[in-house]
Amino acid sequence: MDINMKKILLLGMGLSSVFLLSACSWIQPLPGAFNVALLEEKDVTGCTKLGTTTSSVLSHVGLYDRDTAAIKKDLILLAKNEAVNMRGDTIVAISPLQDGRMEFAIYDCVK
């Protein structure tokens, strides 16, 4: 294998690593996090608001911008973890995704 072929192979492996890492999530769900519902504001009128939380994650890995869906998934999981900590069962996004951050309201909707 000549030196140019080795360079191309190494470059390809490096780029694929960046793409794989950008889709990965290292956020661990707390017990009960997957039982927390993500609803809209109109759906929580009969619930008790417990507070708010702001979730943030890296939106860039090196020079690569992370996938918007992966970022949003991570932010929602962080908010669900915080809902568990606050003894809530529902979250509502109250801000749009911007620079790897979103704000959520946390509710108790179980009566």
Rank of each mutant, 00 (worst) to 15 (best):
M1T: 12
D2S: 07
I3F: 11
I3W: 12
N4F: 11
N4P: 00
N4W: 01
M5P: 01
K7I: 08
L11E: 00
L11P: 05
G12L: 09
M13T: 04
G14C: 06
G14W: 03
S16R: 00
S17Y: 05
F19V: 14
F19W: 15
L21A: 08
L21P: 00
L21C: 10
L21F: 12
S22E: 03
S22V: 09
A23W: 13
S25G: 11
W26V: 15
Q28G: 05
L30V: 10
G32A: 05
G32W: 05
A33F: 02
F34A: 11
F34P: 02
V36M: 05
A37H: 11
L39S: 11
E40A: 10
E41V: 13
E41C: 05
E41P: 06
D43N: 15
V44A: 03
V44F: 03
T45V: 13
T45H: 12
G46D: 15
G46C: 11
C47T: 06
T48E: 09
T48C: 02
K49C: 10
K49A: 14
G51N: 04
G51V: 00
T52N: 13
T54H: 08
S55C: 07
S55W: 07
S56I: 05
S56K: 10
V57N: 00
V57D: 00
L58M: 11
S59P: 03
H60F: 07
V61G: 06
V61R: 12
V61S: 04
V61Q: 01
V61W: 07
G62K: 02
G62S: 01
L63C: 04
L63E: 04
L63D: 08
D65I: 06
D67E: 11
D67Q: 10
D67I: 07
D67H: 11
T68G: 12
A69H: 13
A70R: 07
A70F: 07
A70C: 06
K72D: 15
K72W: 09
K72H: 12
K72S: 14
K73F: 09
K73W: 12
D74C: 12
D74R: 09
I76G: 10
I76R: 11
I76W: 07
I76N: 08
I76Q: 10
L78Y: 02
L78D: 01
K80D: 05
N81G: 10
E82F: 12
E82A: 08
A83M: 01
A83K: 03
A83T: 00
V84G: 01
V84S: 03
N85H: 10
N85A: 13
M86S: 12
M86Q: 15
R87V: 13
R87A: 15
D89N: 08
T90F: 04
I91Q: 06
V92Y: 06
I94Y: 06
S95L: 01
S95P: 02
P96S: 11
P96E: 14
Q98D: 14
D99S: 14
G100E: 01
G100K: 02
G100W: 01
R101Q: 10
R101A: 07
M102G: 01
E103F: 06
F104P: 02
I106M: 02
Y107E: 02
Y107M: 03
D108C: 14
C109E: 01
C109Q: 03
V110L: 13
V110G: 08
K111S: 09
